[in-house]
């Protein structure tokens, strides 16, 4: 029972971290141009995120 009292919060926290990360990526426009992102990795010197 005592292990549960910290395991559950830890599990939920990690899950929430993932959810938060996804929502952040969504908001910062990382899903706007999926095809372009796949190609841009081949371009040298283009490592700046979208302005």
């Amino acid at each position: 029972m005592t292990t549960l009292s910290y395991l559950i919060p830890v599990a939920l926290f990690l899950g929430a971290l993932g959810l938060g990360g996804f929502l952040w990526a969504l908001r910062s426009g990382q899903y706007e141009d999926l095809d372009g992102a796949a190609e841009r990795i081949l371009i040298d010197g283009d490592d700046k995120p979208q302005g």
């Binding site: 706007e32 141009d33 999926l34 095809d35 372009g36 190609e39 841009r40 371009i43 283009d46 979208q50 302005g51």
Partner: peptide, 24 residues
């Protein structure tokens, strides 16, 4: 294509930035 277009447009006078979106 992305690189060609962005470099060529970026070199023009008065152009601040050019960005290609390949998906759309």
């Amino acid at each position: 294509c992305i690189q060609t277009i962005e470099t060529a447009l970026g070199k023009l006078d008065h152009v601040e930035a050019a960005r290609v979106n390949l998906s759309t």
